[in-house]
C-alpha cells in the first residue's frame, strides 16, 4: 500500500513539473509579445504565482488531513466561509473606475456584476462563519 502511494506521489510530482514547464513555454511564446499591448503579466510573474499555487496545494492537503473526522461538518462549513475570499475580486470589480479608456456602458456592467458578486460573497462570509460558530458551540456542550 505504502509503495503504491509513493508511486502515486511520484507521478503527481512529475505531472506538476511537466505542467509548469509547458505553461512556462506557452507563455514565453505569447505573453512577452503581448506585453506591449498592456498585458502587464510576464512569464516570470506567472511562474512565481504558479509556484505559490503548487505550494499552497500541498499545505492544504496536509492541513485538511490533520482535521479530526468528528469535525468534518464544521470543516466543510468553515472552508466554505473562507472560499468566499472571492469577495476580494468582487470588491475590486465594484471599485472599477469609469473614465479614461473604459467606456461608460462596460464600466457599469463591470460594476454591477461586481455588486452582485459582493452580495453573494457576503451571504457566504457571514452565513458560513456564524453557522460554524453555532455548530462548534454545540460540540462543546456535548462534551461536558
Amino acid at each position: 500500500m505504502s509503495k503504491l502511494l509513493s508511486m502515486r506521489q511520484l507521478w503527481l510530482t512529475l505531472a506538476v513539473l511537466c505542467f509548469g514547464l509547458a505553461a512556462e513555454n506557452f507563455i514565453t511564446g505569447t505573453a512577452f509579445a503581448q506585453e506591449a499591448a498592456g498585458g502587464g503579466h510576464s512569464a516570470h510573474d506567472f511562474v512565481f504565482r504558479f509556484s505559490i499555487f503548487v505550494l499552497a496545494v500541498f499545505v492544504g492537503y496536509y492541513v485538511v488531513w490533520s482535521v479530526t473526522p468528528a469535525l468534518h461538518t464544521p470543516l466543510m462549513a468553515v472552508t466554505n466561509a473562507i472560499s468566499s475570499v472571492i469577495v476580494v475580486g468582487a470588491l475590486l470589480a465594484v471599485s472599477v473606475e469609469i473614465g479614461g479608456a473604459l467606456s461608460e456602458t462596460n464600466g457599469w456592467i463591470a460594476k454591477l456584476l461586481g455588486l452582485a458578486a459582493l452580495v453573494l460573497a457576503s451571504v457566504n462570509i457571514f452565513g458560513g462563519f456564524l453557522v460554524t460558530q453555532r455548530m462548534l458551540s454545540m460540540y462543546k456542550r456535548k462534551e461536558r
Binding site: R49, I52, F53, V54, A56, V57, V59, G60, Y61, V63, V64, T79, I82, S83, V85, I86, V88, G89
Partner: peptide, 11 residues
C-alpha cells in the same frame, strides 16, 4: 485568491 483557492483542491 490563489493561495486560498489552491488549498481547497486536495479536499
Amino acid at each position: 485568491l490563489i493561495v486560498t483557492g489552491a488549498w481547497w483542491a486536495p479536499r
